[in-house]
Amino acid sequence: MNWLLVIAGAVIGAPLRYLTDRAVQARHGGAFPWGTFTVNMIACSVLGGLAGAASSAVVPQWVQLFLGTGFCATLSTYSTFSYETLRLAETGAKLYAVANAVISVVAGLGGAFLGGAVVQLFL
């Protein structure tokens, strides 16, 4: 039955990723992939919060499977991040490509730590 929880989370996360990406990118034109950056930062923050809560043993396994493995895994997108970074470099926007790689990794880790820290404050 665990796989059903993962699928249920993915059914929500995948379309939300696409819709959020398109909505953000439509508002922020230009070369930088703001949509992918946004969904990845949200997923990192939520997953960090989930990890912070799970480390205190207050999160049941079904929530971890639904929210972490299903929802966050499909909300975030490493493959699109990689593709967009490569495309930026190939089209001559090397500064944007480097900025996307560095800022995404640093902000993603920061979001995960911040999400975990915020949840720990309330536990």
Rank of each mutant, 00 (worst) to 15 (best):
P33W: 10
A117R: 10
A54T: 11
A10N: 03
Y83D: 07
L109F: 08
T80M: 06
F32E: 04
G29F: 01
A26V: 04
G9W: 02
G116Y: 00
A23N: 08
G116M: 06
V63L: 13
T36N: 04
F37H: 14
G35Q: 05
R27G: 10
A54F: 10
L114Y: 06
T91R: 15
V63K: 09
F66A: 14
A23V: 03
H28M: 12
A51S: 12
Q64D: 11
C72N: 04
G9E: 03
F113L: 12
S56A: 14
A14S: 13
G68N: 07
G30F: 12
M41R: 08
F81V: 12
L121N: 12
Q61A: 13
F32W: 14
E84V: 09
L67F: 12
A73Q: 03
A112Y: 00
Y83E: 14
F32L: 14
Y96T: 00
A23M: 12
F71E: 07
Y83T: 07
W62I: 01
S79E: 10
V24I: 11
G13Y: 10
I103W: 12
T36V: 09
D21E: 03
P60D: 13
G49P: 06
R22L: 06
V59L: 11
C44W: 02
Y83M: 07
P60S: 13
E84R: 09
L47V: 04
A117W: 14
F122Q: 13
M1V: 00
V102Q: 08
F71I: 01
Y78A: 10
A57C: 08
T80A: 12
V46Q: 02
L88Y: 07
A26D: 03
V102E: 12
N100F: 10
